[in-house]
């Protein structure tokens, strides 16, 4: 078992005819992901890398039984794309658009959550269950090299760091049960603590690694879940962005969500709070395997 996606996942690609979708579809197919359909309104009947394109998600689901969607629709249209996918019964979404208007993001995430749909993004590079399925560009052309299968659940606020963490695990002889890039926009479909609760319930996950950043409260919620005993498996945390504390609050250096606004927002505060809650805080990527093996 992995969480969210696995060998039974039948992937639909919304916005399949765009450049980034074509780029990723090739590598997903090479990886062995079962991509059953693409959707681009007005382009039904075409095909992308051998994948049939439909006009609507409903038609694609009816014809192919798709149950997860990789959403490449750009920021200005992605709210409707998410609503369409949720109404068509898709259960897992990865939404790649970044800088989605905040009100649109809130609406899309609300409709997904109300239907029990698990959504990564906005501004994610997807999720991967190594050896089984990858949803989105995660891993690029070398997903097998970077993301080895194993028993560590990885949840990262950064797609790039999900790769660096999993590559570090692979080189240390460890691997991931599932790796989720949550998305870098301010509003994302799943809270980090929710992802960790899924790993907690997954018999194939022994421990978790999280990557956090300044700004927002994902990491603080993880600390609360640890203190409440909702997460009993070991959690190793790598939190970047301490340099931001050299600059005034309210300056954004990367993800828009990674902006320090309050006292508990900084990288050092998050490290302190996670550590006090029982997480193992890593000072570098290289420390992660050792902290996981500590037992």
């Amino acid at each position: 078992m992995s969480i969210l996606i696995g060998s039974e996942t039948r992937v639909l690609v919304q916005g399949a005819t765009g450049a980034q979708a074509r780029f990723d579809i090739r590598y997903c197919l090479d990886y062995g992901t079962v991509i059953v359909a693409g959707v681009t309104p007005g382009r039904g009947g075409e095909s992308v890398e051998g994948v049939s394109v439909f006009n609507t998600v409903a038609a694609a689901v009816a014809a192919t039984g798709a149950n997860a969607s990789a959403v490449y629709v750009p920021a200005r249209g992605v709210k409707d794309a998410v609503h369409e996918a949720v109404e068509a019964g898709i259960g897992v979404l990865a939404c790649f658009a970044e800088n989605v208007p905040r009100h649109d993001a809130a609406s899309a995430v609300a409709v997904a959550r109300a239907a029990g749909v698990r959504m990564a993004g906005f501004n994610t590079n997807g999720m991967i269950s190594p050896g089984r399925c990858k949803l989105g560009g995660i891993g690029g052309d070398r997903a097998a090299q970077v993301y080895a299968p194993g028993r560590i659940g990885v949840c990262s606020r950064s797609g790039g760091m999900s790769a660096e963490i999993c590559w570090t695990l692979s080189r240390a002889g460890l691997g991931a049960s599932t790796c989720i890039s949550m998305g870098g926009d301010p509003i994302v479909g799943m809270r980090m603590a929710e992802v960790l609760r899924l790993f907690e319930a997954d018999p194939e996950t022994d421990a978790c690694v999280i990557f956090g950043e300044p700004g927002g409260s994902h990491e603080i919620e993880v600390a609360e879940a640890l203190r409440a005993g909702e997460i009993a498996k070991p959690v190793v945390a790598l939190i970047a962005g301490q340099f931001q504390e050299n600059y005034p609050a309210g300056v954004s250096f990367g993800h828009f969500s990674a902006m320090i606004r309050g006292d508990n927002d900084s990288a050092s505060a998050k490290r302190r709070i996670l550590s006090a809650a029982g997480a193992r805080v890593a000072a570098s990527l290289e420390e992660i395997p050792g902290l996981l093996r500590r037992g």
């Binding site: 980034q20 950064s158 970047a240 301490q242 990674a258």
Partner: peptide, 30 residues
Amino acid sequence: SGGGAGLLQHDLLLAAGGRPANHSDLSPTS
């Protein structure tokens, strides 16, 4: 690039005694 990885590199640069002339970020482009 990549938001989070950029943050880590910036931290690492300071830790290694370097002084960044800027911070930057680039998301995927074709």
